[in-house]
Design a protein around this nucleic acid. Structure first.
Lengths: 223, 223
DNA sequence: GTCAAGCAGATTGTCTGTCATTCTTTCATT
DNA sequence: AATGAAAGAATGACAGACAATCTGCTTGAC
């Protein structure tokens, strides 16, 4: 089979870039949860027209990254502990499954990528850069989800993680969380590298539970 | 406590109604998969302006109910068997979990609602109305998902079911599928009614696997 | 002084119209 | 028949406008 050159670089539209910019802004906490976003202001800040902005807002609303109430406009959602818990519970379901599947099917090359990601997190864990911690930890899980053999699982997981990204960055800056997180992730890596599905599932489940507990601690103290 | 009358009927906007109309149209197969949707045509058919339509399209695209390729416009996605399988696999994960949780926490009143839904499907199964079969079967699962105690699980499940709704209606019109489906659903109901979590999980898993197999049969013969 | 009514500003929902850019298809050429 | 170019169609993006709705503030009454 000849190499497929039909790669067609997707043209990046204004609305796509706007979605990504706003997504990032929400991730990194530029907007306080509960903040009302005003269309006209965002238009100016982003340098785009109102129709383009509104299209981007519909996308974000469908992803549940913003709330969109008729006649009141968009706002950054305020998650309750119940909602955060619910998200973590589904994440557990997905990540345990993904880790288990991954252990049975990951390719040698991807395993090395996982190891690289783990080392990157190791480095970030010992630093003061809490953004780097979240990023590298997310990368680690990205590799697992990308190799679980189910793109839908990956897609849904990405969406869920996005919705609680703000809380993750807070909990990851807790004293000692990065260190214990590293140990848990190493367990997951070892189990996957060994091809031990049962151990991989167990380790992934444990990791999520710990992350949930850490998030709860940060929510209790933070607000 | 006085009854909460602060229910505020959400004003229905044009774009919301458009999203629902198009969603329904895609569900019921008005557009053949692969069909390109043309903005100007849809505007006329729906009697709305292009900006409103485009906002609705962004929402649907974020829900993965349509494909939206820059400069080529929206089209109804053509799902491959691999994608359908992936969706069914995640559905299995979610439904098994939901059935298990539901068996442990469902209220008496909701259990009766589940029974009612089961009977409704029983009636539909013996009829020739394949739309009613899909609808009542969906209602049955809605009750389970609504009582699993995790709204995120419910939300994600709804999104996944929507994406394969077309295939479900095809498989449900297969000879004999409704009958065996009924037996499987009765098993699930019995397990939940008995509060038997293990049995509920097992029955839910079996039901999904059967549904997936039926869908595969209908895809093989249908295309 | 407190509370309710009403008014003005701000914001969103929606439409019309326009223009550049990018496909898509047709047609002429070789 | 394959190539290439040009015409047509469709989308991406913007500006401007207006009605409906919400919000907050002022005014007025008790």
């Amino acid at each position: 089979m000849p190499p497929d050159l039909n790669l067609r670089v997707l043209p990046r539209t204004v609305q796509q870039e706007t979605v990504e910019k706003l997504r990032l802004a929400i991730f990194s906490g530029v907007f306080e949860p509960g903040t009302r976003l005003i269309e006209s202001q965002l238009c100016v800040q982003l340098g785009i027209s109102r129709p383009s902005l509104r299209e981007a807002l519909r996308s974000l609303a469908a992803e549940r990254l913003i709330d969109l109430v008729p006649n009141r406009g968009p706002s950054v959602p305020t998650l309750t502990w119940e909602e955060v818990t619910a998200i973590y519970e589904v994440r557990e379901l997905l990540e345990v499954e993904a880790a288990g599947r991954c252990s049975q099917r990951i390719a040698e090359e991807q395993l090395r990528a996982l190891e690289t990601a783990l080392h990157a997190f190791e480095k970030a864990a010992s630093s003061k850069d809490s953004l780097a911690r979240v990023t590298t930890a997310a990368d680690f899980y990205s590799v697992i989800l990308a190799n679980c053999g189910n793109p839908i699982l990956e897609e849904i997981h990405r969406g869920l993680v996005a919705r609680i990204s703000l809380f993750r960055s807070r909990s990851m800056s807790l004293e000692g969380r990065a260190v214990s997180s590293l140990a848990e992730m190493k367990e997951i890596y070892d189990a996957i590298a060994a091809g031990d599905e049962k151990a991989a599932r167990k380790a992934a489940g444990k990791h999520i539970l710990e992350a949930m507990a850490a998030t709860k601690r940060s929510m209790d103290s933070g607000s």
